[in-house]
Computed example of a mutant assay.
Amino acid sequence: MKKIFITAFLIGTFSLGYAQSDYYNDYRRSVTDVNWQTVITDLLLSTTQANEINSLNRRYDDYDGWNRVYANNPDRWSTDRYSELERIMGRDKYAKFKTKYYKGKNPVAVYNRNKNNDKRYKHMDKKAKSYKSNNGKAHKNK
């Protein structure tokens, strides 16, 4: 019984850590995938706005700092980050930013679109469809 409990505990711990590191990777991509100097120049942001954006981008340089804030709700990072960007830029400039870099979509949706699209299980879908189409006849053709 102890072995089963320990195994379940370890699996839960490692899978939770893996899932949260995926969220952190999305967070880091939201910082690194955009050339912020170009954004600042294109939107004619003030020095104060540029400093606030740079400070926001440096807020969680490592996983531990990010995890202290978002451990209980890792999905919240995107809402927090993009509402802060909207506050810094202002509504009009934020709308221009969204249009140019996220094709008008909400950046939160951009980073969450692949959460339920796990590639590790894609091959299972084909097997399930072929099994359903055969209605179990594949087992009788031995």
Rank of each mutant, 00 (worst) to 15 (best):
M1V: 06
F5A: 12
F9N: 05
F9A: 14
L10M: 12
G12I: 06
F14K: 06
S15T: 15
S15D: 01
L16T: 13
Y18L: 11
A19T: 11
Q20M: 13
Q20A: 08
S21L: 06
Y23F: 11
D26T: 09
Y27I: 02
R29P: 01
V34G: 02
N35W: 08
N35H: 14
W36Q: 06
W36M: 07
W36S: 05
D42H: 09
L43Y: 03
L45T: 05
L45M: 05
S46F: 02
S46C: 00
T47E: 15
N51D: 15
N51A: 15
E52R: 08
E52F: 02
I53H: 01
N54S: 14
S55D: 13
L56S: 08
N57Q: 14
R58C: 09
R59D: 03
Y60C: 01
Y60K: 04
D61K: 10
D62I: 10
N67H: 10
V69P: 00
N72K: 12
N72M: 12
N73D: 14
W77Y: 10
S78V: 03
D80K: 00
D80L: 06
R81Y: 13
R81L: 11
S83C: 03
E84H: 06
R87L: 05
I88P: 01
I88R: 01
M89L: 06
M89E: 03
K93W: 03
K93H: 09
A95F: 07
F97G: 02
F97A: 00
T99Q: 14
K100F: 08
K100W: 08
Y102E: 04
Y102R: 07
K103C: 00
K103L: 13
P107H: 05
P107G: 05
P107K: 01
V110Y: 14
Y111H: 07
N112Q: 15
N112M: 10
N112E: 14
R113D: 11
N114G: 06
N116D: 14
N116P: 00
N116G: 09
K119N: 05
R120T: 11
K122R: 11
H123N: 08
M124W: 10
K126R: 11
K129A: 07
K129I: 09
K132D: 12
N134V: 05
N134Q: 12
N135C: 10
K137S: 09
K137R: 11
H139R: 10
H139L: 08
K140Y: 08
K140I: 05
K140W: 04
N141M: 07
N141I: 07
